[in-house]
Design a binder for these strands. Sequence first.
RNA 1: GCCCGGAUGGCGGAAUGGCAGACGCGGCGGCCUCAAAAGCCGUUGUCCGAGAGGGCGUGCGGGUUCGAGUCCCGCUCCGGGCACCA
Length: 817
Amino acid sequence: MAEYDFREAEVRWQRRWDEDGTYRVDLDDPRPPYYVLCMYPYPSGPAHQGHIRNYTFGDVLVRHRTMQGHAVLSPFGFDSFGLPAENAAIKGGDHPRVYTEARIAELTASVKRLGAVYDWRRELRSHDPDYIRWNQVIFLELLRAGLAYRAEAPVNWCPGCHTVLANEQVLADGTCERSGDVVERRNLEQWFLRITQYAEELLDALDGLDWPERVKTMQRNWIGRSEGAQFRMAVSGRPGIEIEVFTTRPDTSFGMTYAVLAPEHPLVAVLVTDGHEDEVAELCARAKQATDIERQSSEGSLEKRGAFTGSYCVNPFNDELVPIYVADYVLMGYGTGAIMAVPAEDERDFAFAEAYGLPIVRTVEPPGGFTGAYPGDGLKINSGFLDGLDVTAAKRAAVEFLENLGIGSRKIHYRLRDWLISRQRYWGCPIPVMYCSTHGIVPVPAEDLPVLLPDDVEFRPTGESPLRFHEAFLRTTCAICGGPAVRETDTMDTFVDSSWYFLRFCNPRDETGPVDLGAARHFMPVDQYIGGITHAILHLLYARFFTRALADTGLGPKEVREPFSQLFCQGMIRLGGRAMSKSKGNVVSPDDYFAKVGADALRLLHLFIGPPVDDVDWNEQTEEILEGCSRYLGRVWRLATDPPEQPVDPAQDDTASESLLLRRAVHHTIARVTADIERYAFNTAVAACRELTNTISRHARSGTDRAVIEESIDTLLELLAPFAPHLTAEAYEFRHGDNVHTRPWPVADVRLLTEQNVTMVVQVNGKVRDRIEVERDISEQAAAEAALASPKARAALGGAAVARTIAKPPRLVNIIT
RNA sequence: GCCCGGAUGGCGGAAUGGCAGACGCGGCGGCCUCAAAAGCCGUUGUCCGAGAGGGCGUGCGGGUUCGAGUCCCGCUCCGGGCACCA
């Protein structure tokens, strides 16, 4: 047989997989459905190694599950709205659509060269008019359901670019990634989605997900549930005016020595008294203009900035007056924007109290020698009716007290904020509303959808959205009164697009709604979702929210509330110690490797180089390992198509026992590879295949029964098929004229997994001294006797008396002196 | 600061509390060849030893156990996430 020509064979097999329908599935497929999905990519050009790694893992699962008899849904699409395309246009390049579609073509080509199989009939792109239409239908439904709303919010504004930036575009030093200008906070009218309505459910449901613990922890922190009490306090001498505070430590209320309002709190202006205006105004002004970065910097947490309003409120627990301060360490966006300050039990309050000379009253006695805030448990002191209770009991009693007074209650707050989806950008899905001077916000009627982006636009070097200057787009008529109206020029955050595409994939050409309920019921949830850890919070949280919002509005199946049953996050590729990414310009293009060693070798590299969850450092050794993978595939090819000459006259006795040994090795390998794929240990699965290859080669050179060798080679090709799909397909076809990818996945014969004789380790005082062959079902006593009979063990004992033996047959016996 | 991960040969990495280093990369030796490439075979933790063999070895210090890379306690270093959220 000729040498394997991967250049020719890979192209041929890829065309065949595209045409033969093996990886197309439909609703009437009798096989059980299984949904494998890799996070759909932003099309940035030809695939980089991170994509290759992601799609290789996904493809292994698709092919493996297909061989196991599932109807595997494996769709592919593009997250094709986004900033780089628009930035390219601003720099004088092509129109974002032209640019994006060129990048999609490039990425599609590399994905196909990898030999990853998809049901391409289902391809979708978020910039397609069809997807835009359903995106807009969803938005309007969320608006109708009260889950979308418009409100004023502080945003990141870049004065150089004349636009709002996404958080990701603001660098760590608070400057714009593109212009380098210092980003400002501005209050603008923005669209929000009410994700906070689902905070509790999003948090609670995490427990039942088969996701990496790390990701679940990050989501829990992000949602940030905190349980406490909320209550109102009267302001001294100001009847009718109260401040409301939230605390997680109502048990410490007797230690309240002051109260604090956030600078943005509406009562600040009301409560400030003569002589305090200037100081308070200055503080508020400074807080307002400070960037988030400045306000939250670690240095800022040490020097707390505040001012006294001149007013006092009444602590309802002991009727004492406490001064009301304004301080920038209290945030308007959390809780009530006002706190009771207990310096003795809160570090931040402690720092502020020290800086401003405020009293500190402990309500829990800290351990001896302890100075500073003590947030730990202990019995209450200085706390009136709470004295002597522990923290938990005191919390309960304090809430009860507030409830009896009718001024407060138990309350749960979440750190999670509503999702701001407005982007002052062109290349995104238009928000389908208009503004009428008489009717205000008017949704675009369903029959007028989609609202598409006009193509004839001018990209300004300032970065201002071209939609704001496009008269034909801007001017419209009110859907209610027919009077003049202007369209919303903001577009949606691209995370909106990616929050439901996995539902659309179930039937992407459905004309009746965004999600085909029947198809979604059939395929959802995604059984196996694969992507980078970078999306641990945003995308994965938004998708969970959307799935619920669609279920509740009837746009999605109501029983599908979680989108992804199992999540796998693969490690990053690093080059020179940094994440490999196109924006950092440190990429190693897979295209060169496709040409040099072929797709199968590159796939094998990613599978074999280490645990899939771990990061990979791309260096000289990586290339050498790739060479090794390429060599290995050559060995498999030769073994399968041109096996070595055997000795002419093998001894019959040997042949029988050698055959059994080989068959045992084959079935052990089947068991290992199957289990390893299921636990994402692709590196050890490949290692097991390589071990088997070595074993078969050894047998092939000796006199082992030819039929057993051939059978072993077939199984090896089947086990390798998900990893190296082209070469195994070619070899299998050569051998049998059959398609390895439609073969059933091999099943290990348990009778061959349990061996009659095993090697038992003999230890003396925990050190291995001998290895002896024993029967698998040897008794404890017989094992111990065999161990004591070992000459090597006896030598190690050197005549010392045996105190006892620990026998764990048939693996090990430990002799203790 | 808080919360997670991690640390094993020269390197990437294997090891349900039971043979540490599977499988590779690199190195070394050999076969093939006029020669080279490719390919094939062998060897490769470390120290002592001619050898047989033995000592030591999973970041550091303790502990549990007949037995610890694995479990527990206390550190060191590295990586990541969160970071005034009351």
